[in-house]
């Protein structure tokens, strides 16, 4: 464990807790894409298939349970909670899951480290995580207004993966044979997808104005 990875995990944890707390306290999911949340639940499910078979550390297991629990809770709130679901804007959140799931699945079948079910699922989860934010970014551009909690949520999500890239660089130099180019590429693609959001987020923060994404 290095400081970059710990900071990345804490940022990631903080982002899902911010979102869960927001939905739980104001009982609203305005501006939140259910599609992205469902994709994240799928990412964690396919990423953590080994949660009960390979024990790595208490930290690792606890964090996996928190990520699984929070992502499914958020999906439950938006789908089932009698008050929250009313604020879900299904007419705007129309990004089709399978446009992202199918290509990631096909890619994982052809490009992976080892052709086993768990390894293909793990690779699929990496590819899917890289693009899972797209429905959320599309929704933000459509609704054009970003309440700052949602803005912070997306910012933290992007920051976590950027910190992971630093972690991979650090491990590459400190650990022999630590080369996993699939993880690297998926992580860099994911962070680049946030780049334009980061730009507008930083501009709005610098000019102290409301965050507006160009249409």
């Amino acid at each position: 464990m290095n400081i970059f990875r710990l900071a990345g995990d804490m940022t990631h944890l903080f982002s899902v807790l911010v979102l869960l707390l927001k939905i739980h306290t104001i009982k609203s999911c305005a501006g939140i894409s259910l599609k992205t949340q469902e994709l994240y639940a799928l990412v964690f499910t396919t990423r953590y298939l080994d949660i009960f078979t390979d024990f790595i550390s208490l930290y690792n297991t606890v964090m996996k349970l928190i990520f699984l629990g929070s992502s499914f809770s958020i999906v439950w709130y938006i789908r089932r909670h009698k008050i929250v679901r009313r604020s879900y804007d299904k007419d705007q959140d129309t990004f089709r899951h399978y446009f992202l799931v199918i290509p990631c699945l096909v890619l994982a079948v052809f490009i992976n480290h080892k052709f086993t079910f768990k390894e293909v699922m793990w690779t699929f989860s990496l590819y899917l995580e890289a693009v899972a934010i797209l429905p959320q970014l599309v929704l933000l551009q459509r609704t054009r207004n970003i309440d700052n909690l949602t803005g912070q949520y997306v910012f933290l999500l992007g920051a976590y993966r950027a910190l992971y890239i630093l972690n991979w660089i650090y491990r590459h130099f400190t650990e022999p044979h630590y080369v996993h180019w699939i993880t690297w590429i998926a992580g860099v693609v994911q962070t680049l997808l946030y780049a334009d959001f980061f730009y507008y987020y930083f501009q709005s923060w610098k000019n102290n104005e409301k965050l507006q994404l160009p249409a």
Binding site: D50, I56, F67, W122, Y164, N167, Y178, H180
Partner: peptide, 10 residues
């Protein structure tokens, strides 16, 4: 860690 080093990451 099983399946290579990266499996110890979240």
């Amino acid at each position: 860690a099983p399946g290579g080093v990266h499996k110890d990451e979240l």
